[in-house]
Each structure stands twice: as structure tokens, then as C-alpha cells.
Amino acid sequence: MSTNPSVQPSEIIKDNGEIDGKIRLRKWLNMNFRIEMTDGRVLIGVFLCTDRDANVILGACSEYLKNNDGETEEPRVLGLVMVPGRHIVSIKIDDTMDSTTSQKYYYE
């Protein structure tokens, strides 16, 4: 809530490196995330919310078990989940979107 929506993101990237992080995170909102947890499970869902401790809330989330044979198992639908930051091993973002606007920020 603290970021001022009226400020144009591109301007801020130019002159202030500190707010940069927030802007970039904001760009990822509502995109598909793939989070691997410390116990090996993989969660795929829509990135909705985060905080300083990297607690991440994913919407419409599905849980995938890591399989020995590499076989993909049916996912288990979990819905809205909160992943505590300390249990996150890796975060990946889905890049299959065609929109040119959202991608330029993380291709450098």
C-alpha cells in the first residue's frame, strides 16, 4: 500500500535505485510463480503478495511432488497458500507471456 501508484515506474528506475526493488516486484504480481520448497515439493501459482521476509502468497496454487522417475504426477490443487520465506529454495517465473511490456524489466 505504501508505494505511490501515481509515480511512473520507469522514472524511478532511472533516478532511485532503492525503490527499484519494489517496482520490479510489483511487475511480477499476478504472474505465475514456481516455488520449490525445502522439502522438495514444487508449488505453481499466481504471485499475489510478499513481504520483507520473502513470505509469498500464491493464488490458485497446485502442488507437485518431485518424482524419482521424472514422471509428472497429477498435481494437487491447494488454492490460496502462503509459503514462508525460510522454506523457499528457489523461485522461478513463467516467461511464456507474449506481452512485451512486462518482460523488458527482467531481461537485461
Binding site: 500500500m1 505504501s2 508505494t3 532503492e18 525503490i19 527499484d20 526493488g21 519494489k22 520490479r24 516486484l25 510489483r26 511480477w28 504480481l29 505465475n32 514456481r34 505453481i44 499475489l48 503478495c49 510478499t50 513481504d51 520483507r52 521476509d53 520473502a54 502468497i57 523457499i88 529454495v89 528457489s90 523461485i91 522461478k92 517465473i93 513463467d94 516467461d95 511464456t96 527482467y106
Partner: peptide, 24 residues
């Protein structure tokens, strides 16, 4: 999917958030 790893970026960016601040 075309997964792109953003782990380190993500953990870097969240440090710009204040304690207790939610980004949503």
C-alpha cells in the same frame, strides 16, 4: 512453461520493503 530463475533477484528486491510492509 518457460521458467526463469529469479531467486536471487527476488531475495534482493524484497529488501527494499519495510518491515511489515506488504507488496500486493
Amino acid at each position: 512453461y518457460n521458467w526463469v530463475d529469479i531467486t536471487s533477484d527476488f531475495f534482493k528486491y524484497i529488501q527494499d520493503l519495510k518491515i511489515g510492509e506488504l507488496l500486493h
